[in-house]
Amino acid sequence: MEQDSVSNLADQPLGTAVRVVSVDWDRLESGEARRLHALGIDRGAVLKLAHRGIFAGRDPLAVEIGRMTVALRREHALAIAVEDAGEETVHPAQDFGSAK
């Protein structure tokens, strides 16, 4: 992966599929880290930013993962490095055409 295409989840435009490149677990409190992990937000997961909250900072964020929507804070999203998922590698849950 090229470093320059990697950015954090918080800054993604709404509705664009991205793949998690790495998660800076040390930035997260351990309980929160475990919860994100349990929800499947980990290296390799394909996510899509669906909604931003109200008020300044547009916090919290709603993230689609598979067929699930998860709310998390901007500070969590800042710890999640992502890259463009690209059309051909989109996970089946997001791409109906490729499902067998």
């Binding site: 997260l28 409190e29 929160e32 919860r35 994100l36 929800l39 919290p60 709603a62 699930m68 929507t69 998860v70 709310a71 998390l72 804070r73 500070e75 969590h76």
Partner: peptide, 10 residues
């Protein structure tokens, strides 16, 4: 204490 986070399935 530190403000806590918010992670929740919708």
């Amino acid at each position: 204490g530190q403000a806590s986070g918010f992670i929740m399935e919708l």
